[in-house]
Design a protein around this nucleic acid. Structure first.
Lengths: 352, 352
DNA sequence: CGTCTAAAAGACACCGGTGTCAAAAGCAAG
DNA sequence: CTTGCTTTTGACACCGGTGTCTTTTAGACG
């Protein structure tokens, strides 16, 4: 492997080269790079020109060392939904686009008992300025404590207000689930089934809460037989579908705590010859690609994951992103999810 | 924001602290860190102990500066399939797990005319050791040239042999598409439709080639009316389905160049009351999550994306990964894709 | 025109490691 | 006990930037 470190066949210019060309000291060049105010316009322009002539780009490692701080932020995730991770990541990148920051992405195995050690090693080795924790690991308090101990800033992303606005970004899932369920009720549905997310996940608990509240408002209650546990996976949707759709009086609508499980329920309906949405309405959650790739297309709740990425980054490192990224004091860390109605929802049979 | 740079309330120990505690020079500590062979066992153990006592972790920025090389590799992608990106990423992380390397992830907007500039800026700023290019941007020769010019190693990941084994990792898509098509033919299908990927994508061309070759082997040919263009998106699948399934004599099987388009075709079939697989067999490509989330589940081609991630990383930075990562000379850079048969394939109507 | 002050620029150490080369230590042979 | 060699260790410069403090310069004022 060639030992070249870059440049069209030569070495990258350094701050010394720029200083020599501009006829100033390297410290002055440094001031220009860092937009110091104590510099005359004339000098600034001369240095600027030298920088451009040479195509100088400051070495981030050297800066990191001198600043005693690198320009990395980390995204820690263990989300089963790849699209979610990537959308969030895109939001973060939108936010840091014009800054000096770069993004390190780090999948985490929440099942592993070495998880905390792994993360600790990672953080100690890379020493990012801050870390963003995606659900479900954002719900892990030990992880947050670890960041705190290591002096790494952190932001937890979740579906419920976890902490304070400084360490948290979330969306109003509970309310929007309620909205979706009210829509079903307005269409005439009375027997509405529910497929839950995994135990111990705050998101799952929130969605269930929103569901139950909306039912209660309308004077309905969730029959035990219309309740199915789940784990956010397709196969859990299959099992839930088998359970709910084999009942003597099956529900006329089913709310599933995510799209994958909704797709599973829909498969079972197809297999049993139950028309969707004619005989069964289905609602999911996530607005994953699957939601528009199945037939009929799935009504679902879209959470503003990309915007949450932007917000998380701003919450974490507003001081690196320029004034436009500043989040006004007291601004709520809760972003709005929306109910997206598609083909999978209709009035119950006999109510057209 | 507190100015702490880490550690349980204090500063991180440096190499000097270790040297002082062990009673040696910092250079000796450096030798231990870097597993130099010119060091006595006695000294090594003493230094080792000091390192552990202090919980010393070398500062990666300082090392990067002194080594004149950082320990980052970059993953550049613009893949519409998030799962693919994440799986590949996981493979890369598997490969670099026990090394000093870290992974930078960088989405690229291939539509933008500033794309090359963006990537150049990124590479100049971060100066990763190497970059991995995922399809479709791996097919961009200018991008590869840019890496070359900047002295950044690169590996192109793709569905066809793009270059030489040093810069390329791919899978044998063409052959496996042939296998899938031969399976359809063996089941009795004679009118087999084809939905193509976007023009200018090598992957699309490869898949078409495999398809046509298999037909030709069996003495069949692709009727023009059974051919539909596409762009790898769901909506293109819808359009293709509308076209192919409105024919007086529609195909009894359709090969789609990816799963999303297959899902679109399947939706159209459902809408028209055409039973899948009873009246129409469908095959996709990618084995994306969608493939198992639709009903009936989709037969498809799975490419070994995670293994390709491992291989790409090893190809790129074998010299950083220890002897077990070494790729034997002459080993083929082509990994095996596999045909996965699921519910969406059956003999044509009347041939059961 | 000299004095005073604030703004601008520079000198030099330093961040935490590694490379180079010379010095010290260990050891066998004379 | 030297000598001569190899192995091990250390001193010191250096990577490419920034922080601190000092010096120089420019402008205001008497």
């Amino acid at each position: 492997m060639a030992a070249r470190t870059g440049g069209q066949g030569g070495k990258q210019p350094t701050i010394n080269d720029v200083a020599a060309l501009a006829g100033v000291s390297k410290k002055t060049v440094s001031r220009v790079i860092n937009r110091s105010e104590f510099i005359s316009e004339k000098t600034r322009l001369a240095v600027q020109k030298a920088i451009e002539t040479l195509g100088f780009v400051p070495n981030p490692q050297a800066r990191a060392l001198a600043f005693r701080r690198n320009f990395l932020i980390a995204l820690l995730h263990d989300n089963p939904n790849a699209q979610t991770v990537l959308n969030f990541q895109q939001g973060v990148l939108d936010a840091i686009k014009d800054s000096d920051l770069a993004l390190l992405v780090r999948p985490v195995d929440r099942g592993s008992d070495k998880m905390l050690d792994d993360v600790r090693t990672f953080l100690e080795k890379q020493r990012p300025i801050g870390a963003m924790l995606l659900p479900p690991i954002s719900e892990n308090d030990e992880l947050a404590r670890l960041c705190e101990d290591l002096g790494v800033r952190y932001v937890r992303v979740g579906s419920a207000l976890l902490d304070d606005a400084k360490h948290c970004v979330s969306s109003n899932d509970r309310e929007v689930v309620g909205e979706a369920v009210r829509r079903l009720i307005a269409l005439g549905h009375r027997r509405i089934g529910f497929v839950r997310g995994p135990a111990g996940f705050r998101s799952a608990a929130e969605r269930e809460k929103g569901f139950r509240e909306a039912l209660a408002e309308a004077g309905l209650r969730l029959a035990d037989e219309h309740y199915a546990p789940g784990n956010y996976r397709y196969t859990a949707g299959i099992e839930a579908g088998e359970k709910l759709l084999s009942l003597a009086e099956p529900p006329t609508a089913i709310f599933c705590s995510n799209d994958e499980m909704a797709a599973g329920v829909m498969s079972v309906a197809h297999g049993k010859g139950i028309a969707v949405p004619g005989q069964l309405s289905i609602i999911g959650f996530d607005d994953s690609p699957t939601a528009t790739h199945i037939w009929p297309t799935l009504s679902t709740v879209r959470w503003p994951i990309r915007e949450m990425g932007v917000r998380a980054a701003r919450t974490l490192v507003a001081d690196f992103l320029g004034p436009s990224a500043r989040i006004p004091d007291g601004e709520s860390p809760v972003l709005a999810s929306t109910f997206v109605e598609r083909q999978s929802v209709a009035p119950p049979a006999g109510k057209a």
